[in-house]
């Protein structure tokens, strides 16, 4: 069986947020998307560390925006999922779905 690295739980959340937001994805909307869907507060430093790691794996690319006064003269860094990243997300989905199916404890209900 091929040896490959699995996506971590938070990595998957960040990649899914990137896919949802599209071209305008930077730290703030990514964190907000994860917070809204999970109902938990997100540490933005962790989001950036995860994005850096995903970038090193070639799953995410980034570009620098222009600095603005509202952000204390600091630029935004926009992130985008790469084709490889998209493949990894699909693979993670398949793996999760396979494991999900046929487990009685996970059938029905939301809690």
């Amino acid at each position: 069986m091929a040896k490959r690295e699995f996506l971590g739980g938070f990595e998957l959340l960040v990649l899914l947020a990137l896919i949802r937001i599209g071209d305008e994805a930077y730290g703030v909307p990514i964190s907000e998307a994860i917070e809204e869907s999970s109902g938990k507060d997100v540490a933005m430093g962790s989001v950036y560390i995860t994005l850096e790691r995903l970038g090193q794996k070639g799953l995410v690319s980034s570009r620098l925006g222009e600095p603005t006064a509202e952000r204390g003269g600091r630029a935004k860094t926009y992130f985008r999922i790469t084709a490889k990243g998209l493949r990894e997300v699909r693979q993670a989905r398949r793996t999760l779905m396979n494991l999900w199916q046929g487990v009685p404890q996970l059938q029905g209900g939301t809690s």
């Binding site: 730290g27 703030v28 964190s31 950036y48 850096e52 952000r71 600091r74 630029a75 860094t77």
Partner: peptide, 14 residues
């Protein structure tokens, strides 16, 4: 880290 400036800007924005 490479994104410290952007992270700082995001924190100010939020």
């Amino acid at each position: 880290g490479p994104n410290r400036e952007s992270l700082g800007g995001d924190l100010i924005e939020r």
